[in-house]
Design a protein around this nucleic acid. Structure first.
Length: 479
RNA sequence: GGCGCGUUCGUCUAGGGGCCUAGGACGCUGGCCUCUCACGCCGGUAACACGGGUUCGAAUCCCGUACGCGCUACCA
């Protein structure tokens, strides 16, 4: 049977790092196996739904290039992919289980439940609190109904036996049924809970594997039991390790950037986000780290997933982003850069010569976010940096150097990178100053800063007139 | 409290009984290269949680302890 997996976020907010990793591993697993990846939205709890969350999740996946074969947006042969569109069916299923005695109505109020729980907690049967209405007499049921008490539906979990799974990441795991308790599969308002909707949809969507976070591991036995009651077999599972913050707690917004969009807005490129995330919890071998998406697809295997949780390392992601940025084909770099500048509402976004500037910065910056500060002078005036100004002003014989540079540039022929380099080095030699000293004034004159892309390339990019104008402007500024 | 999972350098990891005086990468750091920055190159730093077993031999297998995390909702 061909592989079918799903990524099923609930639309409670943006797509966070942990979610992306789950989406990515599912996607890699499917693509590697030539199977199908499904995107399903688990929106059974409308009260928790955030406006626009579905669109935002889809947008994030699109930006990353993780294309799902079946999804709410795309549709597919197993519609719907939105749980809110299948509520009636979940309810019927729950009712059917009640009919068959495999589930039952529980009329406990929240207070009663809470009280029972605290008591049961101290006993050797802590799950008993969930079973209080498991065997209600008909008269009692009638009384509750007459009272108009709302009821939830609980699954009648066997008191004996155990559930054992063989997780692809963790191996064999067993839970005793009696410790599980009778969990709620349908709320008092008639809407199914995750414990019913999720496994049922997995069957309806023909899932062969369930690849999800370790936080969901404890709900596996409940879902296995539910599907058994329904006469289905639970898919093969693979529970991925959690992604932690530096404090070893689950990664969240308080640890800094936690959503895909934040990384995009910080100038990260999908190539590196994917590569980095693939490596938290998985590795190919003892040395390979930098990989393209295609290579990841080819090399990914769930067996090599590490069961231990991992700390998200911003620094390593930043480094990796630089590596990918440097390796990007110029056209792709320009595309990514323009996309970045557009979303960050930069005026540079429409510059026609952006592509030419790529060659000057590609080796220099680790994120697209540095572009504007680093290379903005190529498109507008020099940067305003008093410190740089002070530093040139303190340089010996600045005026002389600037004048000589201007002269050299003025008469230079041909006006090429090599030509400019030769000319400026000659200026240094004639004035008897080392290049690292002599090239500082023209660098500040041209860029406004002490740190810049290659000086000679920058000068050629700006052109003869503009360069001379800037050299002159600086000499005037420092006298 | 109960149940479950986990534990190799600060971090991500390789390792699945002898190849390990534990390898790679990020970070930090010394140096080289160099028009600044960055890249690159050479070097350094730093780990098998602890205690018992099993075995000729354990980072690797088993048990226990400790610690961490997750779950313990009419949230997913």
């Amino acid at each position: 049977m061909s592989v079918r997996v799903r990524f099923c976020p609930s639309p409670t907010g943006y797509l966070h790092v942990g979610g992306v990793r789950t989406a990515l591993f599912n996607w890699l697993f499917a693509r590697h196996a030539g199977g199908v990846a499904v995107l399903r939205i688990e929106d059974t709890d409308l009260t928790r739904e955030a406006d626009g969350a579905i669109e935002q999740i889809q947008r994030s996946l699109d930006w990353l290039g993780l294309e799902f074969d079946e999804s709410p947006a795309k549709g597919g042969p197993n519609s719907p992919y939105l749980q809110s569109e299948r509520l009636a069916f979940y309810r019927e299923t729950a009712l059917d289980l009640v009919e068959r005695g495999l589930a039952y109505r529980c009329y406990q109020t929240a207070d009663e439940l809470a009280a029972a729980r605290t008591v049961a907690r101290e006993t050797d049967d802590p799950a008993s609190a969930t079973r209080l209405h498991r065997d209600l007499a008909t008269a009692e049921v009638r009384a509750f109904e007459a009272e108009g008490r709302p009821a939830v539906i609980r699954l009648r979990v066997p008191l004996e036996g155990a559930v054992t799974i063989t997780d692809l990441v963790r191996g064999e795991i067993t839970w005793e049924n009696r410790l599980l308790g009778d969990h709620v599969i349908c709320r008092a308002d008639g809407v199914a809970t995750y414990q019913l909707a999720n496994p049922l949809d997995d069957v309806l969507h023909g899932m062969t594997h369930v690849i999800r976070g370790e936080d969901l591991l404890p709900s596996t036995p409940r879902q296995v039991l539910l599907l058994e009651a329904l006469g289905h077999r639970y898919p093969i599972t693979a529970h991925l390790p959690m992604i932690l913050g530096p404090d070893r707690k689950r990664l969240s917004k308080r640890h800094g950037a936690a959503s895909v969009e934040e990384f995009r807005d910080a100038g990260y490129v999908p190539e590196s986000v994917i590569n980095y995330l693939a490596l938290v919890g998985w590795s190919f071998d003892d040395a390979t780290e930098i990989m393209t998406v295609d290579e990841l697809v080819e090399r990914f295997s769930i067996e090599r997933v590490n069961p231990a949780p991992g700390v998200f390392d911003h620094q390593k992601l930043a480094w990796m982003n630089g590596v990918h940025l440097r390796g990007l084909a110029p056209a792709r770099y320009e595309q990514a850069l323009r996309g970045y500048l557009i979303t960050s509402l930069s005026a540079l976004a429409t510059e026609p010569r952006l592509g030419e500037a790529v060659a000057l910065v590609q080796e220099k910056v680790a994120t697209l976010g540095e572009f504007e500060g680093f290379a903005g002078f190529l498109f507008r005036g020099v940067a305003d940096d008093p410190e740089a100004l002070a530093k040139v002003a303190a340089t010996e014989r600045v005026a002389e150097i600037l004048a000589a540079c201007a002269d050299a540039i003025a008469s230079l022929e041909p006006f090429t990178v090599e030509g400019v380099e030769l000319a400026l080095r000659n200026v240094c030699e004639e004035l008897g100053v080392k290049p690292r000293v002599g090239l500082l004034p023209p660098r500040v004159a041209v860029s406004g800063r002490t740190v810049s892309p290659g000086l000679f390339e920058s000068i050629v990019f700006l052109g003869r007139e503009e360069t001379i104008a800037r050299l002159v402007a600086l000499s005037r500024a420092i006298v």
